[in-house]
Design a protein around this nucleic acid. Structure first.
Length: 749
DNA sequence: CACATCTATCTTTTT
DNA sequence: GATAGATGTG
C-alpha cells in the first residue's frame, strides 16, 4: 500500500520506469514474480504501442491488471491518466477490483469501463457541441427500431418491401464504418440502399430532435466531436496518456478510429486480444483491426501468450485441431503444463428432448458422483431459443439453474415503461419514451390522438412535450383527448419538479404511484401482473442500491437520475451472472466468452444449427469455427458435445440433424463417442470415424405389436394415440396402460 | 378507442 | 410457440 501511494504521488515520468524507492522496488518485484516470461515482457513494456496476442486462458486479464499496476508503481502514469476498456461492465468492475487489490488502495480517478460507457461519459461533457443536450437519452435496439419504423411511415416506405430491421442493419453498418447518410448514399446505389439512405437521413434528424442516441451513435458522435474540435481532442489526449483495450479482436472501425484519435500522439496503446476469438463480425467488429495492428502501428511490439492455465491438454488439442482450419489467423498453439485429462465426450441423441435429458442426467452424475458444484457446470448453445427444452428438463430433474441472456430484465415491457417515464422526466424531447408511456396505463389517448401530436410536433419542429403542453393548438384534437393529455402533462410536470433533487428510488416510486401505473397493474389481479409488480419492485431496489452507492462515493457533476439512466441503458446480462448460489449456467456461445467452467456441454452440434445456416450463407464459416473454439476453451476439465438426429425448429418442422462439421474436425484420438440406443448409452469405438447410425429415434409401434416393458413385462399394443402415446395391454396382470412411446422403458419383441 | 382474435414470420449471435 | 401487425367487434 505504501508503494502504491508513493508512486501515485510522484510526478508522471515522461520516460520509462524511473528509479523506484526501496519499497517500490520490492513491490515491483512481487508484481513481476507472478508472471511467466512473455507475460512479464508485456507488463514491463515501455512506451509506444503493444499488441498482446493472448490465447484462451493464457492470463490476459492478469497481464492487463499487472500492466496497470506496473504503470502506477513505476510512476509511468497517474491513475487519472489511464483509460482501460473492456467488453462488459462486469469485466470492468473485476479489472478495477483486481488492480486495486494489486496496489492496495482504491483508484477512483482511473477510467475502467466499456467503450460505450466511456463514450457516453465523454459525450456528457461535449454533446452540446453537436446540438444534443447533455441529458440525451440512450435508445436500445428496440427503441431505435421504433424510431426507424416511424421514419419509414413518414416517408411512406412500404415495410413489406423494405423490412425495418434490414434498414436498421444498413444504417448501423454505415455508422460503424463512420459513414453519414450522404456518404452512405454516394457509396451505394440499389433501390433498397437508396431507400435506406433516405430513412437514414430522416432518422438522424429525428434522433437529434428527440435528443436521443443509439448504441452506434455513442461511438460515432464521440469520434465526431473529437475530430471536429481540437480542444476536445487535446483534453482527452492529455487525460488518457495510457490506453489499454481488452478483447481487441471485437473492436469495429469506429472504435479503432477512436483509439487512433486518442493515442496517435503518444502512441501508448496496449491492446490485448485473440483473433481466434473474434465472434462479433456480424455486429461489424473488424478482425482486421487485430490482424493488421502491426501494420497500423509500425513501431508496435508484439507479445504472444500461448501457455494456458485453464484447461487440460486434451481440451486444448481439440481446440487447436478446430481453429487450425481457419485461414484468417495468426499462428499460435496453446499448451499447458497440466496433464492430458479426460477425453472429449461426443454424444449422439435421437432428438432435442433426449439431448436435454442426457445432459441433465450427466450433470446430476457429475454433481453426485464426481463432486462437482453446479456452479462449475455450464451448457452452451448457439441460439437462445434452444434453452427452452433444456430448462423444462432441468426443472423436471430439480436441478437449479440460471439462464444468462434471452429475455432480459431491462427489455421487459413494465421495466421499459418505468424507464421511459424516467427518461421523459430528464429529456422532454424523447418521442419514443413519450409514445411508450402516454397511454400506459390507459388514459384514453389512442393511436389517432398520438398521431396528431406527433404530426404536429414534426411540422412545427417543437419537442413533443411542448406540443403536449398546448394540446388545444393541435389541429383536429378531440375534447376528450385534450383533457386526457393535459392531465398526463400535469402529472409528469409535477414529477419533474422533484426529479433533480430526490433520490432515484423515491422518484421512481412516486412515478409508479402517481401515474397510476401500479394501480392499473394491481387492478388486473392476474399472476402475470403480480410478476410485473415484482419486477418493478426489483427495479426500485436497483435504484435504491444506486442511490446508496452514490451517497457513499459522493455526488458527481451529473444529476443522479441522468447517471442512473445511462448506467442501466448500458447494462448487460453478463453483469448479473451469479456465482454464489450453486446454479448450473445456461447461455449462448456468445455470452460464454471470457468465462470458464470445470465442465462444459456444447449442445446442438448439428449442421445448420451450429454452424448456423444463416451464418454460413453469409460466408461466416470461420467465425462459426471461432465460436466453437471459444466454447471449447471455456472448459477446464470436461467437455461434452452433443447433437440430435432430429430437432424441432420453430414449434413444428422436424429437421434432420447431421453432425456438425466441427465434430468431424476434432482429432479422433481425443474423443469418445456415444450413441443413443433406445434404453442406454453404450460407449462406441473410441475415435471411430462415424458411429453407425442407430435404428432411428423412438421405436415405431403399431397396434398389434408385441412389446416388452422393463417392469410390466410382456404386452401387446392395443392403440396408438397422437402425441406419441401408445396403449399397451400387459399379459402379466391383464391391465391396459397408456405410455409415452419415446420415454417408456419398452422395446419391440 | 379498447380489446379480442387471427395471421405471418420468425431465430443467429449483442455492446 | 411467441410475438407483432392486421383485422374485426363491442
Amino acid at each position: 500500500m505504501s508503494a502504491g501511494s508513493a508512486a501515485a504521488s510522484s510526478e508522471p515520468a515522461s520516460h520509462g520506469p524511473g528509479a523506484p524507492t526501496a519499497a517500490g522496488a520490492d513491490h515491483l518485484e512481487r508484481l513481476l514474480a507472478e508472471l511467466n516470461s512473455p507475460q512479464r515482457d508485456a507488463v514491463t513494456h515501455g512506451e509506444g504501442p503493444l499488441l498482446v496476442l493472448a490465447g484462451a486462458g493464457s492470463g490476459k486479464t492478469r497481464v492487463l491488471t499487472h500492466r496497470i499496476a506496473y504503470l502506477l508503481a513505476t510512476g509511468m502514469a497517474r491513475p487519472g491518466e489511464i483509460l482501460a476498456i473492456t467488453f462488459t461492465n462486469k469485466a470492468a468492475a473485476e479489472m478495477r477490483e483486481r488492480v486495486e487489490a494489486l496496489i492496495g488502495r482504491a483508484i477512483r480517478a482511473m477510467w475502467v469501463t466499456t467503450f460505450h460507457s466511456a463514450c457516453a461519459r465523454m459525450l456528457r461533457a461535449d454533446a452540446e457541441r453537436l446540438g444534443y443536450s447533455r441529458s440525451f437519452t440512450i435508445y436500445d435496439e428496440a427503441d431505435s427500431l421504433r424510431m426507424i419504423k416511424r421514419c419509414m411511415e413518414e416517408l411512406e416506405v412500404d415495410p413489406k418491401r423494405f423490412p425495418p430491421r434490414a434498414v436498421r442493419a444498413q444504417i448501423s453498418g454505415a455508422k460503424n464504418r463512420l459513414l453519414d447518410a450522404e456518404a452512405y448514399r454516394e457509396m451505394h446505389g440499389s433501390v433498397f440502399e437508396e431507400t435506406a439512405a433516405d430513412v437514414y437521413a430522416l432518422y438522424e434528424k429525428r434522433m437529434l430532435e428527440a435528443n436521443a442516441m443509439d448504441f452506434d451513435d455513442l461511438l460515432v458522435r464521440t469520434v465526431n466531436v473529437i475530430e471536429l474540435y481540437a480542444e476536445v481532442r487535446e483534453r482527452w489526449r492529455r487525460s488518457f496518456r495510457h490506453v489499454l483495450v481488452d478483447e481487441y479482436q471485437d473492436t469495429n472501425r469506429a472504435q479503432y478510429r477512436l483509439l487512433q484519435l486518442l493515442t496517435s500522439e503518444h502512441g501508448n496503446l496496449m491492446v490485448v486480444g485473440d483473433e481466434s476469438q473474434s465472434i462479433y463480425g456480424f455486429r461489424h467488429a473488424d478482425i482486421g483491426n487485430i490482424l493488421d495492428f502491426d501494420r497500423d502501428f509500425p513501431e508496435a511490439e508484439t507479445v504472444k501468450l500461448e501457455q494456458n492455465y485453464r484447461s487440460t491438454q486434451t481440451i486444448l488439442s481439440a481446440a487447436n485441431g478446430i481453429i487450425e482450419r481457419n485461414r484468417q489467423r495468426i499462428e499460435k498453439r496453446l499448451w499447458t503444463a497440466a496433464g492430458e485429462g479426460e477425453q472429449v465426450q461426443l454424444c449422439e441423441l435421437s432428438d432435442e428432448h433426449e439431448e436435454a435429458r442426457w445432459v441433465a442426467a450427466e450433470v446430476e452424475r457429475l454433481v453426485d458422483e464426481e463432486g462437482l458444484s453446479r456452479s462449475e457446470i455450464a451448457v452452451f448453445y448457439r441460439t437462445n431459443a434452444m434453452s427452452r427444452v433444456l430448462e423444462d428438463t432441468l426443472v423436471r430433474f430439480e436441478l437449479p439453474y440460471q439462464v444468462i441472456g434471452g429475455t432480459k430484465f431491462y427489455e421487459r415491457a413494465e421495466i421499459k415503461d418505468a424507464v421511459a417515464y424516467l427518461s421523459l422526466l430528464v429529456n422532454p424531447s424523447d418521442q419514443i419514451s413519450f409514445a411508450r408511456v402516454v397511454n400506459s396505463p390507459r388514459r384514453g389517448i389512442g393511436a389517432t390522438s398520438q398521431g396528431r401530436l406527433a404530426a404536429h410536433a414534426n411540422t412545427t419542429g417543437l419537442p413533443i412535450w411542448e406540443v403536449a403542453g398546448r394540446v388545444e393548438e393541435v389541429p383536429g384534437m378531440g375534447a376528450a383527448a385534450i383533457k386526457a393529455i393535459s392531465r398526463f402533462h400535469e402529472t409528469i410536470e409535477a414529477l419533474r419538479d422533484r426529479a433533480s433533487r430526490a433520490p432515484v428510488a423515491r422518484l421512481l416510486d412516486a412515478v409508479l404511484h402517481e401515474t397510476g401505473y401500479l394501480d392499473a397493474l394491481e387492478a388486473e389481479r392476474t399472476i402475470e401482473a403480480e410478476g410485473r409488480i415484482e419486477n418493478l419492485q426489483e427495479l426500485v431496489g436497483v435504484a435504491g442500491e444506486f442511490d446508496a452507492n452514490r451517497a457513499l462515493e459522493g455526488e458527481g457533476e451529473v444529476p443522479p437520475l441522468e447517471e442512473f439512466l445511462q448506467q442501466i441503458a448500458l447494462f448487460t446480462e453478463q453483469d448479473k451472472l451469479e456465482r454464489d448460489e450453486p446454479l448450473v449456467t445456461l447461455m449462448t456461445l456468445h455470452n460464454a466468452k471470457g468465462l470458464e467452467y470445470d465442465a462444459v456441454f456444447l449442445i446442438g452440434c448439428e449442421e445448420g444449427v451450429f454452424p448456423h445456416m444463416r451464418a454460413l450463407e453469409e460466408g461466416g464459416e470461420e467465425e462459426e469455427r471461432r465460436l466453437c473454439y471459444v466454447g471449447i476453451t471455456r472448459a477446464r476439465r470436461r467437455l461434452y458435445m452433443t447433437w440430435a438426429r432430429e430437432r424441432r425448429m420453430f414449434g413444428g418442422r422436424r429437421e434432420v440433424g447431421i453432425p456438425s462439421r466441427f465434430i468431424d474436425e476434432l482429432p479422433p484420438d481425443l474423443t469418445e463417442r456415444h450413441t443413443s440406443a433406445p434404453a442406454r448409452w453404450e460407449p462406441a469405438l473410441s475415435g471411430a470415424a462415424a458411429a453407425p447410425p442407430d435404428p432411428g429415434p423412438a421405436l415405431e409401434l403399431q397396434t398389434g405389436d408385441d412389446v416388452v416393458h422393463a417392469s410390466f413385462g410382456d404386452g401387446v399394443v392395443t392403440g396408438v394415440e397422437p402425441g406419441g402415446v401408445i396403449v399397451v395391454r400387459f399379459a402379466g396382470d391383464g391391465s391396459e396402460r397408456k405410455l409415452m412411446a419415446d420415454y417408456a422403458p419398452i422395446r419391440k419383441r
